[in-house]
Amino acid sequence: MSDEMLNEEGNVQRTKKFMYVNRKAPYGTVYALESLEVVLIGAAFEQDVSVAFIDDGVYQLTKGQNTTDIGMKNFSPTYAALGDYEVTKIYVEKESLEKRGLTVDDLQHLVWEDEDEDYAEKDSIKVVSAEELGQIFADQDIMLNF
């Protein structure tokens, strides 16, 4: 991915850093699902994309979700496709996991293939402290909170 692209007027434009921040649990409200739809569409725009899960947002990534008996669509498998969309920077806040009695083992194992390293499979999820994530936020151009 180049750092620059041409805009509609043909002028060179810098790639922007987009950060999607998810703070809500799935199913109880539609925010998690429709946030994921934004991330997937946004991935096609060749920008620098990151996704963060904090507070109840960490519940979006739990493995073993089964919605059969609530009659709603289980959209959790879509998170596993993020790597194919080149969304490879997925941050989960350590404090939010701990507060909810969760560890990274309770979450889906999300991976991406690094074409620069012979398609080696790499972990997408990075568990980071609020302090570290705050530094990453400070470096973004666009913050979309859901």
Binding site: V21, D141, N145
Partner: peptide
């Protein structure tokens, strides 16, 4: 400020 973050 350079960016706006909305804590909803």
């Amino acid at each position: 400020n350079d960016t706006v973050q909305s804590w909803l």
